[in-house]
Amino acid sequence: MNALYAFFAVALLMLVAFFGVWGLGWNTLFAVMIPYAALAIFIIGLIYRVVKWARAPVPFHIPTTCGQQKSLPWIKSDRIESPSSTMGVVARMAMEILLFRSLFRNDKVQLEDKKRVTFQGNRVLWLGGLVFHWSLLIILFRHSRLFMQPVPDFMIFVRDIDGILQGLIPAVFITDIAILMALTYLFLRRVVFPQVRYISLPSDYFALFLLLGVVILGVLVKTAWKVDIEGVKVLAMGMFTFNPVVPEGIGPAFYIHIFLASVLLAYFPFSKLMHGPGIFLSPTRNLINNSRAVRHINPWDYPVKVHTYEEWEDEFREAIRGVGLPLEKE
């Protein structure tokens, strides 16, 4: 049900772009104005959200320790999972952000009772997530050629590596296939596994469908319904100089592609997609496990009512005296 809502929402968006361009001919709106607006919303919204998080302090020092603390010098501490230095935290965050360390932790390969090795199920989620995010990054890298003049060599290098299969199948990038497979998996697991279905909201499906839509249209304009790539770059570069030229003769597929991408950009700051920036601020991961060595300050700390020793002694004076314990006031 939740998946259907999201599917219709994305389908509706596609229809809007299709009729906007094919029926009404509002090419400039879809090629220029909406992307401009989406980019603005993305950047401003993202900064707004991060600043909003940043305005709330981290009152307590709460890293989740996943390894041995640094205590006695002869006990080997886990410098990354229970970081004792800034470098450790950087390494921990890098592993988390680049390799999805925590998802990978899921379960160990184990020898089961029937003496066969099982590869525990949830590594698949790690793999799916990792493939999706890395593919997305590389695809963004590839797209940067449309926004840069000249294009730096390492961007071309990344693209060449990604396109290594093109010797056999033209116009196909490894990441295109990978991201489609990963997104399909991420969607299917939400539908197939009852417990993931239970926790999935329409917004979870919406993000997946939106991404799928962008990718599918992207692959299509590169294979089946080719567009004049030079015209697209002229348009993109034109946007930097605030003098965009909408190329003639590009089919609606291209407009749907950039419209969905624009929606995705604009949706980003208001959704769970903020997990990207969010991970950097996660206090269970980005703090050093040194809270007994360095005092953490809570900026809104306030005095609280306590039961002082004097009050305590007053209340129990006779009892204390009775067993011969020392008193402050006899």
Binding site: D107, Q110, E112, D113, T118, Q120, G121, F193, P194, Q195, R197, Y198
Partner: peptide, 25 residues
Amino acid sequence: PLDASGFLGREKDRFANPVGYTISR
């Protein structure tokens, strides 16, 4: 509950899923 059976039935590790493991054994 419907939502748990997926996990109980699928996960094979005897420590990650002691309930499903015990029953099947």
